[in-house]
Design a protein around this nucleic acid. Structure first.
Length: 527
DNA sequence: ATCTGGGCATC
DNA sequence: CTCGGAC
DNA sequence: GTCCGAGGATGCCCAGAT
């Protein structure tokens, strides 16, 4: 892990992609298996390294420094790994290690240990590390490196490293597992392209861009409703069946009612929803069934899974991804007639011949009383199925945002690059002359505005509760959001979906901010 | 046995 | 999911 | 254009406290 620490430290401080790529390629070339594969897994987040809990790290830190100092430092730095890396002081009677473990040893050791052993081992490791190595170890152990290198970038580098096209890497990526020994052997020319290790493999999906100001020639596009569920890929062949999310997670276990109906030879793309009381449920209804290890019978009966299929990547073993949208849709509908499946249907492809038709679709997608439709998708009719987010092919056109004027009530410091600013705000609306919190937002204004608000917060603080400042209830913000739902978390009883600041109303008196009632009238599905 | 807070996924 | 900012 | 990191609400799971 010495080399790994050096690598991620350098990556963190390198901003040029070219230099980052050089660092990574050097590391891959000079690090033996399986360590380079584990490093790759750490960067691409394909292995759960989170064997360390923040609580444990803090607790150990308290044994080496004054808790008050630790808390203050953390508050200032805004990041646990960095705080501990610098504040840690080795114990006088520390156990000296001859060398730091390799990544493979680290993973093996942590996996085999119980909590008490981890506590001791971690102390010993931290004692034997330099500050940089401590930082790397803690980042690795808590998951989420945040060093400016993503899985996507790592794949590009791998492609360069092996003199391959990045699509070739993408193709087989989801069939490979850490520590990627076969993958590296292939890239080094020492073996054939690795074969799938699993019976059914996720195929990287095609994503859309938000429709911005661009003027589309809409006759080139087909429209579909944008459903408010989660993206799924249904795979079935003679080796097995599976349901994947758009990131490639296998969620089959959570939807046995759906899995048992996936018996065909195809790879389909669609939106997973649930039904409730015979209708299609809202995203909130769907959440009841998400992330469950094993749903019970009653829940399945109450919220049966439903899928709206909108694309076919493979049919009967044939790869259709190179074909046009129009052709894939024709093939899909023809195939569907022979293989219809209960609790699933193929989406409508909506013809858009003129502006009036488009306006009409737009009007319908804006109706808040149809909560499971959150806008329109526009898909170029001649577009192939391209993984990733290719430009110009698929657009999502979400319904118009809703807005409300709310008053700032509390502010908190941010994290990371925002750790020196009050960047995290709680807003409220009025009911009976009292402000009730409706949500939090930080996004939608520039860094310059952030500095202005930060100063305002410092000058208008009227109370402090730990890290939270209560401010004068005088500053109004216009908040934009996608929808309103009933909430048990907020005192106001409502919550905003995707809240963001759309305007700072320095000019508006707080008394003229909106009443809570305004939001209550916007609650989805309640007309 | 039940509550609570952090972690993680979805959007 | 959103957004602004950096390259 | 594209990528990145900052951030929102929700519900489930797990560990630890009561």
């Amino acid at each position: 892990m010495k080399e790994f620490a050096k690598l991620i430290d350098r990556l963190f401080y390198t901003h040029s992609n070219l230099s980052k790529a050089v660092l990574l390629k050097d590391y891959f070339a000079n690090t033996p298996d399986p360590d380079r594969g584990y490093a790759l897994a750490a960067i691409a987040e394909t292995l759960d390294f989170n064997f360390l809990k923040r609580g444990l790290i803090k607790e150990l830190m308290f044994t080496r420094a004054d808790p008050v100092l630790v808390e203050m430092s953390y508050d200032y730095v805004g990041e646990m790994s960095e705080t501990v890396a610098h504040l840690w002081t080795p114990a006088p009677d520390m156990v000296r290690l001859e060398r730091l473990p390799t990544l493979a040893e680290l993973v093996g050791n942590f996996q085999a240990m119980n909590k008490e052993e981890i506590r001791l081992y971690l102390s010993t490791l931290l004692d034997n590390c330099t500050p940089t190595e401590r930082w790397a170890l803690l980042k690795l152990g808590t998951g989420g490196l945040r060093i400016g290198v993503t899985a996507r970038f790592a794949k590009k580098v791998l492609a360069e490293f092996g003199g391959r096209d990045v699509h070739e890497i993408e193709e087989i990526w989801h069939s490979q597992r850490p520590p990627y020994v076969a993958l590296f052997r292939w890239l080094e020319g020492a073996a054939e392209k690795p074969q799938a290790e699993e019976s059914v493999n996720f195929v990287p999906v095609m994503l859309s861009h938000p429709l911005g100001g661009e003027k589309l020639e809409f006759r080139d596009y087909a429209a579909e409703w944008k459903y408010d569920g989660i993206r799924v890929q249904l795979i079935s062949n003679d080796k097995g069946s599976a349901i994947f999310t758009r990131t490639g997670d296998d969620i089959s276990h959570a939807f046995p009612d759906l899995l048992e109906r996936i018996r065909f030879n195809a790879v389909l793309d669609g939106e997973l929803l649930v039904r409730t009381g015979g209708n299609i449920g809202s995203f909130n209804d769907l959440q009841q069934r998400l992330n469950r290890k094993k749903p019970d019978k009653k829940l399945i009966e109450r919220y049966p899974a439903y899928v709206i299929v909108y694309d076919a990547l493979f049919l009967e073993g044939e790869d259709l991804r190179g074909r046009s949208y129009t052709e894939r849709r024709e093939r899909l509908t023809a195939w569907w007639e022979k293989h219809p499946i209960n609790h699933m249907h193929v989406s409508e492809s909506l013809e858009v011949l003129d502006q009036q038709q488009l306006d009409e679709l737009r009007r319908r997608s804006n109706r808040v009383d149809i909560p499971y439709i959150e806008g329109l998708m526009l898909k170029r009719k001649d577009s192939a199925y391209v993984s990733g987010r290719p430009k110009g092919l698929w657009y999502k056109w979400k319904r118009d945002p809703l807005v409300v004027d709310a008053v700032m009530m509390y502010a908190q410091r941010g994290h990371g690059k925002r750790s020196s600013f009050y960047s995290d705000y709680t807003f409220g609306c009025w009911r009976d002359g009292e402000l009730l919190p409706v949500g939090k937002a930080y996004s939608g204004f520039t860094d310059e505005e952030l500095r202005k608000i930060d100063t305002w917060v410092r000058n208008n603080t009227i109370g402090r509760f730990g890290p939270v400042r209560e401010v004068e209830k005088t500053l109004v913000f216009e908040l934009a959001f996608d929808s309103v739902a009933r909430s048990t978390r907020h005192k106001s009883g409502v919550s905003l979906r995707f809240p963001r600041v759309s305007r700072i109303r320095w000019d508006k008196p707080a008394g003229e901010a909106d009443q809570l009632e305004t939001l209550e009238k916007m609650v989805s599905g309640e007309g």
